[in-house]
Design a protein around this nucleic acid. Sequence first.
DNA 1: ATGTCGGAG
DNA 2: GGCTCCGACAT
Length: 684
Amino acid sequence: MPESPESSSPLSFVPRSYSLPRDIPRQSRYNFRHLQLLRQNVSSSPLRVIAHLDLDAFYAQCEMVRLGTPPETPLAVQQWESLIAINYAARPFGITRMISAVEAKKRCPGLVLQHVATFREGEGGRWAYRDDAAGSIRTDKVSLDPYRAESRKILSVVKEDLSRWRTRLAGVEERGSEPWLQPARLEKASIDEVFIDLSSLVFGALLQRFPKMRECPTGEERTTALPPLSAGALEWAKECALVDLDEQEAEGDAPDWDDVAMAIGSEIVYSIRKAVWEKLNYTSSAGIARNKMIAKLGSGCNKPNRQTIVRNRAVHRFLGGFKFTKIRMLGGKLGDQVTALFGTEEVSELLKVTLDQLKARLDDDTASWLYGIIRGEDNTEVNPRTQIKSMLSAKSFRPSINSVDQAEKWLRIFVADLYGRLVEDGLLENRRRPRTVTLHCRQGAQDRSRQLPIPTGKTIDEMGLLELSKTLLGQAAVDGRTWPCANLSLSVGGFEDGVVNNRAIDEFLVRGDSIASMTTRSNASATTDESRLAEKKRNANITSFFKREHRSAGELGIGELLNVRDPPESKDLDISGQSVDDLDKMALEKTEDANFPFWEDKIASYICNRCEKSVPSFERNEHEDWHFARDLEARDKQAAKTSHGMQMASLRASNDSGKAKTRGDSGRRGDGKSEKGQTRLAFG
DNA sequence: ATGTCGGAG
DNA sequence: GGCTCCGACAT
């Protein structure tokens, strides 16, 4: 039952206190280099913290908010005679997605049934909520615009809260220059889901709350272990949705910094969910873990309105309890194939299969990926792409339609739909425009499509799009084989950015790039001299940025830049604990500039013994950290490869022969080609 | 560059 | 089941 995160029970999901060691210190598995990787959201960092945030029964909540129905009122969203979303109040009545509206009403007479908004033939291309929509399948087309609009609002609240965190953790006002603390990275995964890479914020919080962590050594010393934590250092609130630890781990054991990182991540996520609830009245669920795959599984574990933390020490037990078909990419034919090949759907069973056995039956890439993924390995990046790549407006016809005339009526509606969305996307401001328009139609099992370039230089308007789509329809219908048509759709794609001045782009590259993305890029394109050069250049830019920042920060006194202050939200969220004493004490310790992680004041250069390039000494730490990150990535490079193609290749190949093969150059290995079977991280 | 296919949410 | 969105591959 939806309720405010706050009202559910005060301060759930949030650790009660952090503290520094007071009993027997225990060596951390992590060192200062690992800590530094966190700063740039490097995906191979063993301290990484990823959140997956998922709105509960999203379409249903949108209607609850729009109609103002209370959380305890059962409500379902209807599309023609079927249901596409059911709120949590309705679920106890046995209402599921695949029963009919009539059946639902029988099971729960008090159910509020709200039909989705629709476009209607001859009504000016405007969607509306209509009482008679359910019976108007012949004249109406579903519109998801209201949900897209809510999705955008929610996303902006999430962003706002994340940026509030960054500001607080950075500890200085933004002054128009690059902040030293990277923003959290956000990936919109679908209309109701986002991934957030919280690593950089967690880094900021660690430095803020644990001054010891700022005493970052230089050079070889950077592999010095992080300060130890004592057994009672981290006390989780008892309501915390913590996944149980693996068998060989005990709650009584001293936590390590990855646990602290998760706790901080959880706190940030809690504050985001709270903001979304308070500002927009939506409840959400979340998973917090070291990568996207686990975070995503976690967010589904305690719905609705709960967040689930999967600590690194809990990953194996957590995953062991799942069917592997729940893992992304294994929900389809690849999953079926694996099930058939190994006679099980359980992760715990599949864990017994060796890598070689997997490789005997799947192509190498798929086998390695599968081997890693069921062991909790997933280094895929949180991809900040926010830009839509294509837009599609479609309608299924039952019964089918039979003429160009009928089809053209729908084209008008498609065009109105797409045009409205293009405007939202920035068409009018000339920020973005599509290059192509495509028409698809289906006749029986036969799919066909026709595509045309959108004339460049001319403004795109509804008339123009309609003309193009009519042309396409004409092309598709020449042989008459398109009728009867069961499905028609129009899409635009190949978006290009409008005119932006070059200086802005330049600046964006410098500002937006991180060591993480540089590393990724260099993996993607086998490292050429050019790319190496480009990397170095960016690296230099980043370094010089920090030097700049150092100087301006120097005016304030370096102590201020990273000064200790109250943990954000500490009052609201009751985190504090006794750690304040420790923090105060540590704050008094004078921190030397040389101890700061990101800069040094030397001018000489040295030759890196890894890549044999000359590197200015002041870049040495970054440079070595960069190699370190690459080494980590190289270890599970296979796992990091995404897999859509692998699936297809593997499936296709397995249809031909017994064993799947990778084709083309997709099997190319990077320079980290690494030993077979050596895909696990040393940490985690 | 265009068309086809299939996966996922 | 309908509606999107995406990416790989073939041509």
